[in-house]
Design a protein around this nucleic acid. Structure first.
Lengths: 340, 340
DNA sequence: GTGAAAGCGCTAACAC
DNA sequence: GTGTTAGCGCTTTCAC
């Protein structure tokens, strides 16, 4: 264990310089792995550093170099989405992001914000001086605010939905296409009256809904029934049950905005004795692990989360380097299991 | 939107001071909300700051005050646990931690580390100068290293298992007690030959196993069969199937180390045509959302994740304030549903 | 109540 | 190849 209490405790680069009999500048160069340092000197410095468990203070270094080596990751919690909800999808994405950023030598500073109570959430984060760039996970209902910022701040990439002509650089699945795939599958499986389960004020969900609608209209089927829900499992569970009471007999296909909602719907349908896919066909979105484990396993539209994380980090790094980058739209993939 | 391109762009406290016609010191005091600043002066300074969207640089402030306002959260990825696995439980805990820390005015710096490739993971983080304290999520197989650090570094709290006489401050569920509850339930439901599903080299899991064993021995039943698995769903799925081929007919009760494993086991059992709880009883651990959604819903041992997060933050803050704190052991709660 | 000045720990010219 | 020096942007004595 590092020698914390030798009388010559090493608190900074200057202490270390004294012990090594060189100047602070040399220590800085040696520890930063710069060229132009005598091999023996460097070795000696590294030895002393190791012996005392010394690491240069990143705050000081950051201040001086005007870069921190930290990327901010912020999750805006929308209107409904109080507290910890930020569902499994975002959490999984966060995990991948952590891995990618680590690989690139960056640290990750995480913030969850409630835009309603803190309209300044994005400026505040960016202006803190603590981060070199920012990744926003989910546009929530903050599209406009994000656009505002994008106008004057380069190193930002957002996970979310791509809209024609938008300013901010976004990475995300083609939600509209995914919606089409879902509706096509439901119809191919025999559904005639579709319903959309989820809150369409979220822009990603609205796009999924719109995609499904494209197909419904093209096929000349009756327009979809909207079944709005919150995202938190507790509330959504009840809401779904209510929806089924109201519309359960009118519909024969459900497109759920997420797998979580689909799983909940499956449970509610089973409780009502509705056969899936016999009476009602069901398609989810995301392809989270839970999709394989429902009974029957869920047909769903897959988002490639790992590719998304890689894209976010990749684009952000290029922006950090000064590039102007385009948005990245990933293709969704229909995964056919047994609910449709 | 903040006025980024006025000719008098405000990049630091000194610029702002010039505009306000005061000294940097006064601006600092005003923006930090210190007393002893004339109300009018303060107001003027705040107005200018707002107008220019200026925020003091936290790096500089941190450097000067020798505190950063950032808490490090580190997830050591164990031997088997490559990549993003760190299961839903940790991710959920992380979400609650983010909320708690935010409430207390701290930012959260997240790191996932692979101790095998980076034995110095904890020193490195602490020594970086970027964080005021650290929360370690999960001891993985790093108990000894954590003990080493705890010896010389105060502001650290760890989520994990409590062991008699340990140095580091830990918050966690009483795993051994949870294990007892699980075994008691399995036996009450008619099981005679229990199996433990999961990797007992993880210390938390070992404690759960030990607890179950306590009961098995006390009741004079044959000792438990160990069914080791990895944590990632893909690998665990196959491993479980294999285990069932080897031992499926010998056992009538399974205690799974986590709900995720339990859900996987349920699927595997269904595929083999084994009735649950008719032929084999099953109990999980954690009470994640998935536990309500399996078919049939899972009997499990609940960990109070929110309370855990609150405890971690609470203890850390007290340690930051210089207190010596005891560990916090939370009671598990058996939740009886339909698998046992 | 405010200004002046020193310095947190580090890096990057610029000398030599 | 190494030392010297001048800050990065902020806070905080200490004067007044």
């Amino acid at each position: 264990m590092p020698d914390r209490d030798t009388k010559g405790a090493v608190r900074n680069i200057t202490d270390l310089a004294r012990l090594a009999g060189v100047s602070p500048g040399t220590v800085s160069r040696a520890l930063a792995g710069k060229s132009l340092v005598n091999a023996k000197t460097r070795e000696k410095i590294e030895a002393i550093a190791r012996e005392h468990g010394f690491r240069p203070n990143q705050m000081a270094s950051g201040l001086r170099r005007q870069k921190t080596g930290v990327i901010g990751v912020v999750i805006p919690l929308g209107h409904d989405t109080r507290q910890q909800i930020s569902d499994s999808f975002f959490m999984t994405l966060l995990g991948f992001l952590a891995d990618e950023l680590t690989r690139e030598g960056y640290d990750l500073m995480l913030r969850r914000v409630v835009p309603e109570t803190d309209p300044d959430w994005l400026d505040r984060f960016i202006g803190s001086g603590m981060i070199d760039g920012v990744i926003v996970i989910g546009q929530s209902d903050q599209f406009d605010r994000i656009e505002d910022i994008a106008d004057g701040y380069g190193p930002m990439v957002v996970w979310g939905n791509h809209t024609e002509g938008q300013l901010h650089c976004v990475v995300g699945t083609d939600n509209r296409l995914g919606g089409r795939q879902a509706a096509e599958r439901l119809i191919a499986a025999g559904a005639k009256q579709l319903a959309f389960l989820g809150d369409t004020t979220a822009i990603e969900f609205a796009a999924r809904f719109a995609g499904a609608n494209d197909v419904v209209r093209r096929m000349g089927l009756p327009s979809m029934i909207e079944l709005p829900t919150h995202l938190s499992p507790e509330r959504a569970g009840e809401e779904i049950a209510d929806h089924l009471v109201a519309h359960g007999d009118d519909i024969d296909g459900i497109f759920a905005a997420t797998d979580t909602l689909a799983a909940l719907a499956l449970t509610a349908l089973r409780e009502r004795g509705v056969a899936v896919p016999g009476d009602i066909r069901l398609v989810g979105f995301d392809d989270l692990p839970i999709a394989r484990q429902t009974v029957p396993p869920l047909t769903t539209v897959r988002q490639d989360i790992a590719a998304g994380a890689r894209g976010l980090v990749d684009l952000l790094l290029r922006r950090l380097a000064g590039d102007k980058t385009e948005s990245l739209v990933l293709p969704p993939e229909l995964v056919i299991r047994e609910t449709a």
